[in-house]
Simulated scan of single mutants.
Amino acid sequence: MKFLADMGISLRTVFWLRSSGYDVVHLRDEGLQKLPDDQILVKARTEERILLTVDLDFAQLLATSGDNLPSVILFRLGNENYNAINERLTEVLRECQADLELGAIISVSNETFRIRRLPI
């Protein structure tokens, strides 16, 4: 799996994913901090990456587009520090790999996660 980390995702999460063997790009790595949301989705889709974000706008943009990719993992945690995100991300990757490969928006809260298959 390949990932694109939005600006709200800590570089520590990116380093953790890389050390676990994943291909991960953070927008900051490429100087794309100000890239508009719709272009971030295009980048993720073109590069076949799963978007990691805390920004609700991506789920809405993707839902209204009718597209089935890219997949988005949306973190809606009370505590969005990298430790909390890494812990929840571990569970999502273990349990939702097939959904992510086919296209889904996965909304992750402290105790649960909800899978919405794409297109919506």
Score class of each variant (00 low, 15 high):
59 A>S: 15
71 S>C: 07
107 S>F: 03
93 L>D: 03
83 N>Y: 11
98 A>G: 03
87 E>S: 10
114 R>K: 11
85 I>K: 00
96 C>E: 10
61 L>W: 04
59 A>M: 12
69 L>P: 00
94 R>F: 08
54 V>E: 07
82 Y>E: 13
58 F>V: 02
80 E>Q: 14
89 L>E: 00
109 S>L: 07
91 E>V: 13
76 R>W: 04
53 T>D: 02
111 E>P: 01
89 L>N: 01
99 D>S: 13
106 I>G: 01
102 L>H: 08
100 L>H: 03
98 A>K: 14
99 D>R: 04
65 S>E: 02
77 L>P: 13
53 T>R: 01
98 A>W: 05
109 S>K: 09
92 V>T: 04
55 D>W: 03
78 G>S: 15
94 R>D: 10
62 L>I: 10
107 S>Y: 05
57 D>A: 11
56 L>W: 10
63 A>S: 15
103 G>D: 05
90 T>Y: 09
101 E>H: 09
98 A>E: 14
84 A>S: 12
93 L>M: 12
82 Y>F: 15
76 R>Q: 08
106 I>Q: 00
77 L>Q: 10
95 E>L: 08
63 A>Y: 09
104 A>I: 01
62 L>S: 04
66 G>N: 03
96 C>A: 14
93 L>V: 05
52 L>M: 05
68 N>T: 09
113 F>V: 11
105 I>T: 07
65 S>Y: 04
100 L>I: 09
